[in-house]
Design a protein around this nucleic acid. Structure first.
Lengths: 250, 250
DNA sequence: CGAGATGTTGAGACATGTCAAAGCCAGTGG
DNA sequence: CCACTGGCTTTGACATGTCTCAACATCTCG
């Protein structure tokens, strides 16, 4: 596992068209793009963004209990957050795909309550939180968006806290993943799992063996077609039926 | 179960000293009291607060999927939030004691993703969210406090999503409750459980029978002394040892 | 091609859930 | 004051979903 150095973090300018293409799917899109276009605040917002990466898989963005300073929007690749319990076992708290924002839970204590690590080659936007909070006092739309994103994370975090069966958890997980891919314009039925079975299991609070077995059974029952990390959702409606109790909270 | 009417909700003025005494323990204390004292913004903040209640136990503050309009600070009594799953069973998402803020998770979709209900005779402060968000653009300390509170709820929500044993969950629950009481100046070792065993069980994702059995065993092992809804924490350090993996996320 | 990580499959163990019944307390009405 | 009712809580016996452990299969990458 490598760690970002201050040098790697340094602002890497990115003025090409690809940047705006990414931005349309970013968590701040509604703030950056339609609203403030032309406003001086927009310039400020773009100013305080550092484009960082690409980083190889298993790069630490921040560690558990690091001082909180910034939130990260994934541009390409994927990130997981996790804590290590006292037995040294990893508990995955979340997966973050392009357009999603990592690190908001660090605001509370001014420390990240978890670690974050890339799952794949990943590029990101880094937003200094003090800077963006200051800007938010002058940009109500930005403040509103920050409130919404944090509020969403509250609901999302309580999603998996229910006493759900392995089947319910897995069905909901796959559908959620597919929907998030679809939001960025990718297929809603075919999905590439960037994370290992162990990561999925840890996230869903299951044993890796259970994940394996349930996926097997889903495949035998014609719900999905899976081969290693490539998967097709064959029967979305039955999956939806299975996962609905979990999904209602998202 | 009774429901608040618009009339009951109407602003009930409360200018006495008791109000400020409450305010010192409120989630917005740091904003209302030390900072802006004397500022016109403070007057505005106090202006947009409605003091409502007291309501009897089992009064609905809001229902699942109601339009989101306000957050509520508990002044006295207690509140639980919950959802009803498709089998009609209640899943408790959180308990809120005096000084704590209910409803922040409604921001995201402009709808409450859960219902909220009093557990006891309860009085509250009602903050219109649009109003307070607008004010927050002019009061950075208020904005910061809202960010912190939401961020805290994210961590708190992921606390119970781990795969913890019944013992770990219960130990952490009791300590958390005691600490929250202690923050408001009450005893950190003696606590009155405002919620039923079934509520505790639902919150911890256990069967009520399991809660009963674990409490029994805790008592036999000299960790606590419990009689109905009154409880004394007899051995905090051993409880802490038991609950530490859960508590580290709070 | 071999080594190590990752994923799969099987057998048995265990924590917690479920079902059923009894105990206990608070409030009600005679 | 007592008996009665109805909710909550406790206790016991049993069922079961998931975990653990262990072996094996498969892929990745040097």
């Amino acid at each position: 596992m490598t760690v970002m150095t201050a040098v790697e973090r340094s602002l890497s300018l990115d003025g090409d068209g690809d940047s705006t293409r990414f931005c349309t799917t970013c968590a701040f899109a509604s703030v950056c793009l339609p609203h403030g276009y032309g406003k001086p605040e927009l310039a400020e917002l773009h100013c305080l963004i550092e484009h960082i990466g690409p980083f190889p898989a298993a790069t630490a963005l921040f560690r558990d209990r690091d001082n909180f300073g910034a939130v990260y929007a994934v541009r390409a690749g994927a990130v997981k957050t996790f804590v290590i319990d006292e037995h040294g076992r990893e508990q995955v708290l979340g997966f973050f795909l392009p357009g999603e924002l990592v690190g908001l839970n660090g605001v509370y204590r001014n420390r990240y309550p978890c670690a974050a690590q890339t799952l794949d080659t990943t590029t990101l936007c880094r937003f200094s939180f003090p800077a963006i909070a200051t800007l938010a006092t002058r940009m109500p739309a930005l403040q509103q968006q920050l409130f919404r994103l944090m509020s969403k994370d509250i609901s999302k975090a309580s999603m998996l806290s229910g006493d759900f069966s392995a089947d319910e958890r897995l069905a909901a997980f796959l559908l959620d993943l597919a929907d998030r891919q679809a939001q960025r314009g990718y297929s809603a039925t075919h999905l590439h799992l960037v994370m290992s079975r162990a990561d999925i299991a840890s996230y869903l609070r299951l044993a890796p063996e259970t994940v394996s077995r349930v996926l097997r059974r889903f495949q035998d029952d014609g719900l999905i077609a899976v081969e290693r990390r490539e998967m097709a959702l064959a029967d979305r409606s039955r999956l939806q039926e299975l996962g609905k109790s979990v999904l209602r909270l998202i």
